[in-house]
Amino acid sequence: MQHIIRSCAAIAAAIMLFFAPPQVANAFPDEGLKLIVAYGAGGGTDVTARLLAKDLEATIGHPVTVENITGGGGWTGWSALANAQPDGYTIGYINVPNIYAGFLNPEMSRSENLSSFTPLMNHVTDYCVWAVSADSPFHSVADVIEAAKAEALSIAAHGFGGDDHLAIMRMERMTDASFNVIHNTSTAISLTQVLGGHVQVLGANVSEVIKLHEAGELRVIGVMAPERSKFLPDVPTFKEQGFDQVWSVSRGIAAPAGLPDDVKQILIKALKETLSSDAHRNAAEQLGLSLDIIEGEEYAKFLADTEGEVKTLMGW
């Protein structure tokens, strides 16, 4: 009798196991995220990323770790992002227009391009500036241009084909000035060169120079924005000084291509919630960062349109 009871119990258990619903996978994310920055510590992208990491952690309830992967004009880090597992646990910053040179330039022969990424959301638009050391003889953009027409001036930029470099090229074409461009892997290096008197002019972004300008260590002579920056209200725009120049870097977040759509939507929702919060906006303003939220398909279109502009400018 007991044998029969045990047999019946075993059969019942087997039937229950057979008809049991499948186990549901843990909801994404159930662990921390890695946030790749393709530039060195201390620059505008790194500062932006560390602010995002701190606030995104509060939104998703898991750590967000910033990893600086430098070199190759940013493409060492972007390649790492493109080749990461497309599971949502590795995301990273892509910098526009800097990212385009690595695959549009035919000399690079790079296999990756925009289709190697899943665009998620633009975060910050940071306008370009020119700055000089406090003891420089240059007090305006016109001062720099006139000197550069007589003899090539040295100017620090952040990577070939990046926003600083493209802005310099446009000014050369507009004015017939000539510059010896010093390309660096981070703005921190460029700042050291200019402050040390080794390079005459700095090409950078608003967020990267505010504190030094306020401290009187660096003199920003022009901002490439449509109107004066609220972070540098005493500095005239290039347009105010007679040069029709508007240029910036946009820092946005992407994941590898092949990201599942449900994971993509979760990330976009978490990012939008984070970037739209009053706490994040206030912290960004303290750092001189201008938030410019563009999400999903609209962000993908922005990236494609800007790629076309860079192709035209660079002749690629």
Rank of each mutant, 00 (worst) to 15 (best):
M1H: 14
V24H: 06
V24E: 08
V24W: 04
A25F: 08
P29Y: 05
L33M: 05
L35N: 00
L35M: 02
I36G: 00
V37I: 07
A38I: 04
G42W: 06
G44I: 04
D46T: 07
V47S: 10
L51W: 04
A58S: 12
I60K: 10
T65Q: 14
T70P: 04
G74F: 11
G77H: 06
A82L: 08
N83Y: 15
A84W: 03
Q85T: 10
I91W: 03
P97H: 10
F103Y: 15
L104P: 03
P106Y: 04
E107R: 15
S109M: 15
R110I: 05
R110W: 09
N113R: 13
L114V: 11
S115M: 12
S116K: 06
L120T: 11
H123G: 07
V124R: 03
S133L: 01
D135A: 11
H139T: 10
S140K: 04
A142P: 00
A142M: 04
A142W: 02
K149L: 02
A150D: 10
L153Y: 09
I155E: 02
F160K: 12
F160Y: 14
G162Q: 07
G162C: 09
H165M: 07
H165V: 03
L166W: 02
L166M: 12
R173L: 11
M174C: 08
D176A: 13
V181H: 08
H183T: 12
H183W: 12
S190K: 08
S190M: 08
T192A: 15
T192R: 15
G197L: 05
V199R: 04
L202P: 00
L202R: 00
A204P: 00
N205D: 07
S207Q: 11
S207G: 06
I210D: 00
I210C: 01
L212Y: 12
E214Q: 15
G216T: 11
E217I: 05
E217D: 15
L218Y: 04
I221V: 09
V223N: 00
F231N: 00
V235D: 01
T237R: 03
T237F: 03
F238L: 11
E240C: 08
W247Q: 13
W247N: 11
W247L: 11
R251D: 02
G252K: 00
G252F: 03
I253S: 01
D261E: 15
D261T: 15
V263T: 15
Q265S: 13
I266Q: 13
S276R: 10
S277H: 06
H280N: 06
L289W: 04
I294R: 05
E295M: 13
L303P: 09
L313P: 05
